[in-house]
């Protein structure tokens, strides 16, 4: 097994400009994440946990420092390369699900696959497998508004998985869910890391959710404290 870290964060700093003042969201963060880990980022609001997640996932750019994922310096990629990289390597799960309302569950899951060279038949197979994994095969033809919050989030997870990414990142995935649905969603994320060997990184402020992870990182004022 590969024991090299899959994600290497080195001296990562992010400074936001807000009006006249600079806000340091992340300050010289260095951390490594091993393949198959389920890392939970915790901390109070404004601690920089979401910023760290965004930078690892390549949807934001650091002020300084590097993010290496499988040896690729994400921060150095140009806009178009970065988009392509995200498509292949990162699956996203958001707090507010962010499904496209006009598309059915299956179509939402299919969306990232449209960017790959797969033909329609192969795409359908991948979609079916991903929906099966989150236990929503029979809801494939439903529109997001016909689904419960928990189901919507599970569709979002299926969408994150369908391209078979290296990383699954989740930003407060249970923030909008009731306890039962949250438990289901976290169970799925946990089994992804334990059984499928996926690397999962999740931001949450809920200690109960954090308990599902294999490692917890606590951030405060832009630095890892534990």
């Amino acid at each position: 097994m590969d024991t090299d870290p899959i994600v290497e964060v080195r001296g990562l700093t992010k400074i936001y400009r807000q009006g006249e003042t600079n806000i340091v969201a992340l300050n010289q963060v260095t951390v490594g994440i091993q393949p198959g880990e389920f890392v939970v980022l915790m901390g109070p609001s404004g601690s920089g946990k979401s910023t760290l997640l965004h930078l690892i996932a390549g949807i934001d750019r650091p002020t300084s420092g590097d993010v290496l994922v499988r040896g690729i310096n994400v921060a150095a990629l140009n806009e178009s390369r970065l988009a392509e990289w995200r498509n292949r390597n990162v699956g996203f799960v958001f707090q507010s699900f962010n499904l496209i309302p006009v598309l059915t569950a299956a179509e939402n899951v299919e969306l990232p696959l449209l960017l790959t060279g797969l033909n329609a038949k192969r795409r359908r197979e991948h979609v079916a497998a991903a929906l099966d994994l989150v236990g929503l095969t029979e809801r494939a033809r439903h529109l997001p508004r016909q689904l419960s919050g928990g189901q919507e989030q599970r569709v979002a997870i299926a969408r994150a998985l369908v391209t078979d990414p290296l990383l699954v990142v989740a930003d407060e995935p249970t923030g909008n869910l009731d306890a039962k649905s949250a438990h289901d969603v976290l169970g799925i994320l946990q089994s992804l890391s334990r059984e499928a060997g996926k690397t999962v990184i999740m931001v949450t402020h809920d200690p109960k959710a954090a308990a599902f992870g294999s490692r917890q990182l606590h951030l405060e004022k832009g630095e890892i404290v534990a």
Partner: peptide, 16 residues
């Protein structure tokens, strides 16, 4: 706008 941002996150490039 928000949806376009999601598409971006999923990996759609500017061109697309």
């Amino acid at each position: 706008f928000r949806e376009l941002a999601i598409l971006k996150a999923i990996g759609f490039r500017r061109r697309e």
